[in-house]
């Protein structure tokens, strides 16, 4: 299986002098094409920081992050932005949308920057995606006129608009009720089955249990790892039991 991300001994700290705190303490991890990975851990364990480092949104102090063979630390700001725009997709806990644009415009924004000429095609694709996640009728709405669950679906459409190789999700269901969260996870799982790798940061054992590989983090280190088969919708209770048992074992 081809590896799309390889992290070697990455370190990152915040603060200075006595206040200095290692948030990532020599983390190494690899992610394969089409893989569905989740990161669990208590608050402040470094899971979000790891995701930001892996996606090139945040710099690291030492170590190396490679995306498809390119060392992210050596790339210029422009090249990093190009990769984020064309090969990665992001879904955050809060819907990070621009207030001035309607739902449809927010979705097509990353893709249309490079392909203004094929705007019709991009818009068509966005409509198909919106239909698929069940918000087809909302394209002209302002972002203040729809619910949190609907916004998060729009966020997923935006992450998918450029056909990325990987989607990063930072607690994408964290702000939603359990019904909405289930629906969002169904969509993300479906995307993954279609071949896009997914890396999720989550607190929720039920969410993590639907992924193939779970990385447990504590104090800036990956302390344990757990693997499952691809989720097919049948054995969720069994998977959840295993995850919670592991969490108890690790004291998370």
């Amino acid at each position: 299986m081809k590896k799309i991300i390889i992290c070697e001994h990455i370190e990152k700290s915040f603060g200075e002098g006595n206040e200095k705190r290692n948030v990532l303490d020599g983390v190494s991890v690899e992610i394969n094409e089409g893989e569905f990975v989740s990161i669990m851990g208590p608050s402040g364990s470094g899971k979000s920081t790891l995701m930001y480092a892996v996606s090139g949104m945040d710099s690291i102090d030492s170590g190396k992050v490679s995306f498809e063979g390119k060392n992210l630390s050596t790339l210029r700001e422009k090249e990093l932005a190009d990769i984020r725009r064309t090969e990665m997709g992001f879904v955050f806990q809060q819907p990070t949308m621009l207030k001035n644009l309607n739902i449809l415009d927010n979705i097509i924004l990353p893709s249309i920057r490079d392909n203004r000429k094929s705007a019709t095609k991009i818009t068509e694709k966005a409509r198909v995606l919106m239909e698929k996640v069940g918000i087809g009728e909302l394209e002209k709405r302002d972002i203040t006129q729809v619910s949190g669950g609907q916004l998060q679906r729009a966020g997923i459409c935006r992450a998918l608009i450029s056909n990325p190789k990987i989607i990063f999700g930072d607690e994408p269901t964290g702000a939603l009720n359990s019904k909405s969260a289930q629906e969002i996870m169904d969509i993300i799982s479906e995307i993954n089955t279609e071949g896009t790798a997914v890396m999720l940061v989550t607190h929720d054992a039920k969410i993590a249990a639907r992924t193939e590989r779970i990385l447990f983090m504590c104090d800036g280190k990956i302390v344990s790892e757990m693997r499952f088969k691809k989720y097919n919708g049948s054995d969720i209770d069994d998977r959840m039991k295993k995850v919670t048992a592991k969490m108890r074992e690790l004291g998370i």
Partner: peptide, 15 residues
């Protein structure tokens, strides 16, 4: 905030 959002989604500083 919107600047950070745009950067996250791949807009460069020159954009």
């Amino acid at each position: 905030y919107p600047i950070a959002v745009m950067k996250a989604f791949g807009f460069t500083n020159s954009d």
